[in-house]
Amino acid sequence: MLFSLRELVQWLGFATFELFLHLVALLVFSVLVALRVDLLNTMSWWLVFVPLFAADGLSTYFTAIVSIRLYQEGEERLAVLRLLWVLTVLSLKLVCEVLLCQKLAEREQEQTRDPLFGLIISPLFVLLQLLMIRACRVN
């Protein structure tokens, strides 16, 4: 809409397949969240977050394979850059998810204010800055 697919792939540094993977994960995750809130109030939050973790794992695996292939074909610089970028983004996303999940799981048991949502969202702030820098470079 605002961006074409090609621009998105260039900007985010993810392959189309990975974008698809994350979309599927998001869909399954939203279904699970709705189920958890409406029907199954005893389900663990860690179970709800499984699709997101799985997507991160699969995406890492996919990136590793692509980077190894690129390395073998003599594109060392591209391979290393891609691996570093994707791992950074995925680890920031994973940290945010784990913290959020922990917060939700702990809040059920005792009324704790720790960790604050500010801390949970902070990886996303870092990610936003990184994306901005990358957008300038791509352009």
Binding site: L2, W11, L124, M132, A135, V138, N139
Partner: peptide
């Protein structure tokens, strides 16, 4: 609008939204 400008637009709005969301949640 170039790509950078569109990115900037998206970036500003998501940043403001995230900040407000965090303040509200906390």
């Amino acid at each position: 609008m170039s790509l950078a400008q569109r990115v900037l637009l998206t970036w500003i709005f998501s940043l403001i939204f995230l900040i407000m969301l965090v303040l509200k949640l906390d």
